[in-house]
């Protein structure tokens, strides 16, 4: 199990964290590659249903960032 990598569903706000992720890429900063990013217009758009839906579909973790 040592080479197991989690799948993390990530909800990123278009204006904040998505920008930060973009900037991190542009600046060539290294970060883990476990994230499956879903861009949302605002992190307020994320409903609890989305989080449960992510877990139901087998996500190992969920990260909501605004």
């Amino acid at each position: 199990m040592s080479d197991w990598e989690p799948k993390i569903t990530t909800f990123l706000c278009h204006w904040c964290s998505y920008g930060a992720a973009d900037l991190a890429g542009v600046s060539r900063l290294q970060y883990p590659h476990n994230f499956r990013v879903i861009r949302v217009p605002c992190s307020g758009r994320v409903s609890p249903k989305f989080i449960l839906a992510a877990f139901r579909h087998g996500a190992d973790g969920v990260w909501v960032s605004g």
């Binding site: 204006w15 904040c16 964290s17 998505y18 920008g19 930060a20 992720a21 973009d22 900037l23 991190a24 542009v26 600046s27 900063l29 290294q30 970060y31 989080i51 877990f55 190992d60 973790g61 969920v62 990260w63 909501v64 960032s65 605004g66």
Partner: peptide
Amino acid sequence: PGRLNFSWISSAEATKFV
């Protein structure tokens, strides 16, 4: 507890994002 995470990151904070 560690499975669900929340954070606030501004678009200028690439280092915080990482």
